[in-house]
């Protein structure tokens, strides 16, 4: 129902695969387009494809070849074994999951709450407060990360999960996005529920959230990717190996293994760090793409 109007505005890329042909550049004919897109696609994905194959190539093959080659002659899993055991990679990945899990949970929960208040309630200073949320979107991280570093260090939270997580528990983008969606749900529904004696709290969790599953899961994807891919903050706020996230771990792993030119192990490590985001990409590609496209169109 109400999801329909939102998808109508948001579905700019259409049903990616089943969109009706529009006859835009049809003079081209399909074949040259297929060939160009295949070449472009392979070039763009090439760094990942190379990493994938190299992660299965034995070390002697990589360093022994006169020229780099894409496919391994013999396939091996020993690079993954090495990456997983030769450095605290399991710990890095665990740290990343804890950090990302809490950040995502916090951002989604708090954005649902704040987005709901901005969408449904009237209250004093509403416009000013909303402007403050939106204004924070244009504050670049350069401006905040030094004071935040000093604050977190003073709290003794360097090298802790709190230090990694707490500064990112809220998301202005999430508040904005969910507010927009909540406002698209007919207000009559709310008025009717109120007449039936439903509380605001009840209405949020029993009506609003179930109706907004699409928008909430889209934001969850953004929050997850943003948190998992964080780099500068975890780099400065952790200096103990046991608290590094996967993104930071791969940097130090690279520095150590490069001396041994162990590129197979490095690429296995890179694949391990990438896999959660690649899985999200493959499972939720349409939602992700739609969400990004909307951000551009709204301008």
């Amino acid at each position: 129902m109400s999801t329909a109007d939102v998808t109508a505005t948001g579905d700019v890329l259409g049903d990616t695969e089943h969109v009706e042909p529009r006859g835009r550049l049809s003079r081209f004919g399909e074949i040259p387009v297929h060939i160009s897109l295949l070449i472009v696609g392979l070039i763009v994905a090439m760094p990942i494809i190379i990493a994938l194959f190299m992660s299965f190539t034995p070390l002697p093959e990589i360093v022994g070849r006169a020229n780099p080659k894409l496919l391994p002659d013999t396939w091996t899993l020993e690079n993954y074994d090495k990456a997983w055991t030769a450095s605290p990679f399991p710990r890095y990945v665990l740290n990343s999951f804890v950090q990302t899990g809490f950040i995502t949970l916090g951002q989604v929960l708090f954005s649902v709450l704040a987005g709901y208040a901005f969408a449904m309630f009237d209250f004093r200073f509403k416009n000013a407060l909303f402007a403050m949320v939106i204004g924070s979107l244009i504050i670049p991280f350069e401006l905040t990360f030094i004071p935040n570093f000093l604050l977190i260090s003073d709290l003794g939270w360097a090298n802790t999960y709190q230090g990694l997580v707490v500064p990112f528990l809220a998301s202005a983008f999430g508040v904005f996005m969910l507010r927009q969606f909540f406002m698209s749900i007919p207000r009559d529904l709310y008025e009717a529920a109120k007449i039936d004696g439903a509380s605001d709290w009840f209405y949020l969790w029993r009506v609003m959230v179930p109706l907004s599953k699409g928008a909430i899961s889209a934001f969850t994807i953004f929050a997850f990717l943003g948190a998992w891919n964080q780099y500068l903050w975890p780099l400065v706020i952790t200096n103990e190996e046991s608290m590094r996230t996967a993104q930071i771990g791969i940097r130090f792993f690279l520095v150590n293994q490069e001396r041994a030119t162990d590129w197979g192990a490095i690429m296995a490590g890179a694949m391990i760090v990438m896999i959660p985001t690649l899985v999200v990409f493959i499972v939720a590609q349409r939602q992700l793409v739609k969400g990004i496209a909307m951000s551009g169109l709204k301008g």
């Binding site: 081209f28 399909e30 891919n229 985001t277």
Partner: peptide, 29 residues
């Protein structure tokens, strides 16, 4: 944007994929 009868999903997947790659991983690759 050229409408194709098939395979456009695959091309999109290949071309969109850097969207989920972190700056650290891009550096490593």
């Amino acid at each position: 944007s050229v409408p194709l009868k098939r395979l456009s999903g695959i091309y999109r997947t290949l071309i969109f994929v850097p969207v989920v790659i972190s700056s650290a991983i891009a550096g490593v690759l």
